[in-house]
Amino acid sequence: MIERADQLVLNYVSKAADAAHGVLRADQRLDFAKRLRARIEEERQGSQNAREVSRLLARFGDPVALVEREARRLAEADAAARRGSGAASPEPAAQSAAGASQEGAGTGGKGATLRFPAIVDDRDPPPGVQAYRKIAQERLGRPPGRALPFAGLRRAAMSSANPMATGGRDARTIVKEHPRDTAALALLVVAALLVPFGLPALAIFEVPVLVWAVGGVLVLLSASWSARDKLVGAGAPLLGYSVGGVVIGGLRVGSEPGVQAFFTQFYDVSGTMFMIGTGLGVVWLAYRLLDLS
């Protein structure tokens, strides 16, 4: 999701720019935002992975804190200029930061931050921080085959959370980024919910089947799922209706003889099995959509 990774950067810079309102002058705020964006892109190194970009931005820290530090530096620079000491030098943290870059610093002139500090982890954190950091690194480095089960669905429950804290994936952003896919899932759910109402057929087709067909076509035309996921999600309702109806209906017939008894039981349970199959298919498609990287 290239657009999602870019959106995370834009959101972060926008938060910093919003925090700078009333704190920095308009020209200072614009220059600060431009240089912050340039430094993020430098550290990002072209990465389009939303999770990696989220972790990078987390290491930059709170945008409000960056603005406060910039305001303090500008105030010190202004005080130094009034004392006749010339242009202010960068703050000590920026001078000592390894790998700090002046590219993208802009031409802000007086009051322009020459560089942002390099992003480095603490060298000697407390023992407790070291232990939890090790656990977090092990989880982040877990191979795809050993990923925590249904991690995507747990992130979906955090729809009001900061996308940076959910790896760039949550229910709200999924709906915004995949409106057609979301509509397809909604149609499949509606098709299952219409089964108990016993609506009159349109021509020779039952209404739930028509609604399912529209949703299934949208699923098959989607570029978000793999071919296997599409077959599982769109085919599960039919599989439940046919195979589930035959198996459960046959078990319910028991010792009652005759084909008529079998068909009676089949039609009694096939609708319920269609609903179960639809539910399983929708859950699978939603999980795969949320688990995209």
Rank of each mutant, 00 (worst) to 15 (best):
Arg44Ser: 02
Pro144Leu: 08
Arg72Cys: 09
Leu36Asn: 02
Phe266Cys: 02
Leu220Pro: 01
Val64Pro: 06
Gly99Phe: 02
Leu202Pro: 01
Ser160Asn: 14
Arg288Phe: 04
Gly128Lys: 13
Leu66Gln: 04
Arg180Cys: 12
Gly167Tyr: 00
Met158Tyr: 15
Leu8Ser: 00
Ala261Leu: 09
Ala261Cys: 11
Gly108Thr: 04
Val232Asp: 04
Val13Tyr: 00
Ala183Gly: 11
Val259Ala: 15
Ser270Asp: 05
Ala165Pro: 03
Ala157Asn: 12
Arg154Cys: 08
Val214Asp: 03
Val259Ile: 13
Thr107Asp: 13
Ala201His: 08
Ala186His: 08
Arg288Trp: 09
Val64Glu: 14
Ala94Glu: 03
Leu24His: 00
Val259Lys: 15
Ser89Ala: 15
Ala183Tyr: 09
Gly271Tyr: 06
Asp170Ala: 06
Tyr267Asp: 08
Asn49Lys: 11
Glu52Phe: 08
Leu74Glu: 14
Ser96Cys: 14
Leu148Thr: 13
Ala81Asp: 14
Leu202Asn: 05
Lys134Ser: 15
Asn162Ile: 02
Pro63Gly: 06
Leu74Ala: 15
His21Ala: 14
Asp121Tyr: 08
Val246Gly: 06
Glu41Met: 02
Arg180Gly: 15
Arg83His: 12
Leu210Cys: 00
Leu153Cys: 06
Glu138Tyr: 13
Leu202Met: 07
Gly145Ser: 14
Gly22Phe: 01
Ala97Tyr: 04
Glu256Ser: 13
Glu177Arg: 07
Phe116Met: 00
Leu57Val: 02
Pro163Ile: 01
Gln48Ala: 14
Asp291Met: 10
Pro125Thr: 07
Ser101Gln: 05
Asp170Asn: 13
Ala157Tyr: 11
Ala191Asp: 07
Gly244His: 07
Ala79Trp: 12
Leu66Thr: 05
Ile248Tyr: 12
Gly86Glu: 04
Pro143Gln: 05
Pro257Arg: 11
Gly281Tyr: 11
Gly111Cys: 03
Met164His: 13
Asp291Glu: 11
Pro237Ala: 01
Pro163Ser: 03
Val259Glu: 15
Gly250Asp: 02
Arg83Cys: 10
Leu140Ser: 13
Pro127Gly: 11
Ala58Leu: 11
Ala112Pro: 04
Ala88Asn: 06
Ala234Tyr: 02
Lys176His: 14
Thr107Lys: 13
Leu30Val: 05
Ala93Pro: 09
Trp225Val: 00
